[in-house]
Design a binder for these strands. Structure first.
Lengths: 357, 357
DNA sequence: CTGTTAGCGCATTCAG
DNA sequence: CTGAATGCGCTAACAG
C-alpha cells in the first residue's frame, strides 16, 4: 500500500516533492514544485489573464505531472457556482436508480456533473430527509437538486429544486410525475376486463400523492364498472416490501379473499407474489397480481409481473432538463409535468378461475 | 418562488432573521439568532462538552426552528473524517447502478453516507477518469471510494480505495470481481452443449481484465471441446451498444456466419438481439445469443436473454464492506475477491437449426 | 462556560 | 505579470 518513496509530512508546507502515487495533491504542492505562488496556479487553472505564457506552460506541466485536480469541496466552498447537479434519494433502490439513469442521459454533454446523495436508508428516523439533504448540499456542493420521492410538501427552497414523484400537496415545487390516476385505472380496468370482481389493493405510502392517486384510480375504476369497493380489500403496503407482505397475508386470509391484487408499486407486487407462493397459491391461476412502475426487476419475477409502466428514466431525464432550464434563468420552465403511463402485460394476470381450490 | 419575507443580504453578517423558506441557513445565522458565538453553536452541534445545558437547549431550539443543517462541504473541508463513502462511476448505467444498490445495502446502519459521483459520460475524453475523480473527492468529500470499472491500472492512492471489476493488470488495489473466466466457460459450454460449433464472440473493452478473461474463457471452452476457434468469429464490441452493433453486423455478414453469439456483456448481447431482429433473424431459431452480467434489463428483451450472471449487487456490497474494514484500520482486509458466476437460462439460446433459411 | 483566533483548499481582489 | 491578503462555512485550539 505504502509507496517506496519518501514519506512527506502532509501537514507542513511540504518541500515540493511530488509524492508520486501518494495522497491528494494540493495546490500548495503544485505551487511549491513550480516555484510560483498559489494564486498563480489558480489563475493558470482557470484560464485567467495575467499570466505569462511561459509561466503558464510551466505550471501546466507541473499540474499534469503531479496529476493535480482541484478539490471539488474547496472549490465549491469558494464559488457560488459548482456545475454540479445533485440527485437526492432516500435510498438506492430500483426506482431511484432508474431516475438516476435518466438524469445521466440528460446531463450528458451539458458540462454539468452529477452527484447522487443518500444517507443510506436512515430515512424513517426523520421524515423530511429531503430538507436536511438539501441544506447539506444546496448552495455549496450543488447548484440545483432533483428530489426523488420526497416525504414532505413544504420543501420551499431558494435554489432550483425539482421533485420527481413528489408528495405534491399544495407545494409549488416544479414537479415531474407519472400519470398515476390514469395508470391505476389502466391497471384495475385490466383486471376488471379479465372478469375479476373482488380485487384487493395493497396501498402505497399515504403521504405521497402518487399513492393517493393510485388508490383513487382504483376506486374510480370500480365506480365506472358499477362496482362498490369493499373497504376490507384495501391494505396498507406503504410502497415497501415488509409492510406489503403483511398486507398480502391479511388480504389472502380474508374469509372471502380477492381473486386479484392491485399493488401500488412493483416492490409491493413482488412481495405479494412471494406471499402467494408461500401460501401455495398459483399466480395467475389462483391469484392475479398487477404492479405499478415497471422497474426492470419486475420482469425477473416468476411469473413475470404484469404492471403499469411509468417512464421512470424519462422522468429523471425531464427533471434534470427542467432543472437545467431553471439554472439558465428560465423561470417559465417551472411547471408540473405529468408523463403518460401504459399497461405492460406479462404473465401474472389472467381470468379468475371459476372454482377456487 | 421568492418568499414573502424580507430579503436579507446573504453576503453580509446578516441580522439573524430566520429567512424562513429561503436559502441555506448558515451557522452564522443560527449564532446571531441565538445570541451566541459561532463556536458555541458548533460545540452544541457536535455534542462537545463545555456548554451550559441552558445555552445548549436554547441553541438547539434555534437550530431546529431555523432548520439548520451543517454544510457537507464546509465540514468536509475542515475535518479529516467525513463519514461519507464515494462510489465513482463513469456513467450511471445498468451495471454501475446495480453496484450502487449493493453499496447501499452494505452501508445501511453503518453510520456512513453514500455519494455517487459521475462526470456524465465525458469519459472517453480522458482515459483515467478515476484518477481525476479520486483527486477531486478523496480526502475532502469522502473518506474512501469504490471505483466501478476503472480504465487504468495504476490507481495508486493513499486513502482506502476498492475497485469493482477493475482493469487489474498488476495493480495492487483491493478488488472485487466476478469469476470472469469460469463465467465465460459456463456460457460457451452452454452453447457448445446445445450443439453449436460456429460460435461468434462480441468482445469487450480490451483494456479491462474482465474482457480479457471472458475472451480467454471462450477460447478455453473451445479447446476443451477439441475445437479450433476461427479468428474471424471474434469482433470488438467494447462493452458498448454502438460498437457491439457494428460487431454483430460484421459477424452476421460473414460468408459462413455463426449460429450463436457469445457477447462479452449484456449490453452487447442486447445490441446483437436488435441487429438480429433488423436482419430478420429469429432468436433463438436462427441465432442463439448469450450475454454476461445479468443486469435486470436482460430479462426485458424479446426474447429474454440467456446470460451469465455475476452477483453485481453483492459485488457492490462486498466492495463497501471491504472499504469499511479498511477504514477501520484492518489492513488485512485488502484482498482480491472473486465471486462465482452462474448461468441463467432464458429464451435466447437453443440448439442450432439443421438447415439455415 | 464562552468567545476569539486560526486554518482546511481554493479563487479573487488588490498591491507591488 | 505576479504574490500577499481575504473569506467561503465550519471545527479545534486556546484565552478570557
Amino acid at each position: 500500500m505504502r509507496g517506496s518513496e519518501v514519506d512527506l509530512d502532509q501537514q507542513a508546507g511540504a518541500t515540493g516533492l511530488p509524492a508520486p502515487g501518494g495522497g491528494r495533491v494540493t495546490m500548495q504542492q503544485v505551487a511549491a514544485e513550480a516555484g510560483v505562488s498559489v494564486s498563480t496556479v489558480s489563475k493558470v487553472l482557470n484560464g485567467r489573464y495575467g499570466v505569462s505564457p511561459a509561466t503558464s506552460e510551466h505550471v501546466m506541466g507541473v499540474i499534469t505531472r503531479l496529476g493535480y485536480e482541484a478539490s471539488l469541496v474547496a472549490r465549491s466552498l469558494r464559488n457560488r457556482r459548482t456545475n454540479v447537479i445533485g440527485v437526492l434519494v432516500a435510498d438506492f433502490e430500483p426506482f431511484s436508480t432508474e431516475v438516476l439513469k435518466g438524469a445521466a442521459d440528460a446531463i450528458r454533454g451539458s458540462g454539468f456533473e452529477l452527484v447522487a446523495y443518500s444517507a443510506g436508508g436512515r430515512v424513517d428516523e426523520h421524515v423530511g430527509w429531503e430538507r436536511r439533504y438539501l441544506s447539506r448540499v444546496m448552495g455549496t456542493l450543488v447548484d440545483g437538486a432533483v428530489l426523488v420521492t420526497p416525504t414532505v410538501t413544504d420543501v420551499q427552497y431558494d435554489g432550483p429544486v425539482v421533485a420527481v414523484d413528489p408528495h405534491t400537496g399544495r407545494s409549488s415545487l416544479p414537479t415531474v410525475a407519472g400519470d398515476n390516476l390514469q395508470g391505476a385505472r389502466l391497471g384495475v380496468d385490466h383486471l376488471l376486463g379479465l372478469g375479476h370482481t373482488r380485487i384487493g389493493m395493497v396501498t402505497g405510502r399515504p403521504d405521497l400523492v402518487s399513492a393517493q392517486l393510485r388508490e383513487r384510480g382504483y376506486r374510480e375504476a370500480h365506480a365506472a364498472a358499477g362496482l362498490v369497493v369493499d373497504e376490507d380489500l384495501l391494505a396498507l403496503g406503504a410502497f415497501e416490501a415488509e409492510q406489503a407482505r403483511v398486507a398480502a397475508h391479511h388480504l389472502l386470509s380474508l374469509p372471502d379473499p380477492p381473486t386479484a391484487v392491485f399493488a401500488a408499486n412493483d416492490r409491493s407486487a413482488l412481495a405479494v407474489l412471494e406471499v402467494a407462493a408461500e401460501r401455495g397459491l398459483e399466480v395467475p391461476g389462483d391469484l392475479s397480481v398487477i404492479g405499478f412502475d415497471n422497474v426492470p426487476e419486475s420482469a425477473l419475477s416468476d411469473p413475470p409481473l404484469t404492471t403499469v409502466e411509468q417512464p421512470i428514466r424519462r422522468m429523471g431525464h425531464d427533471a434534470v432538463a427542467l432543472l437545467l432550464s431553471l439554472l439558465d434563468g428560465d423561470e417559465a420552465a417551472a411547471t408540473q409535468l405529468t408523463l403518460p403511463t401504459t399497461l405492460v402485460t406479462r404473465r401474472s394476470t389472467a381470468a379468475p378461475s371459476t372454482s377456487r381450490d
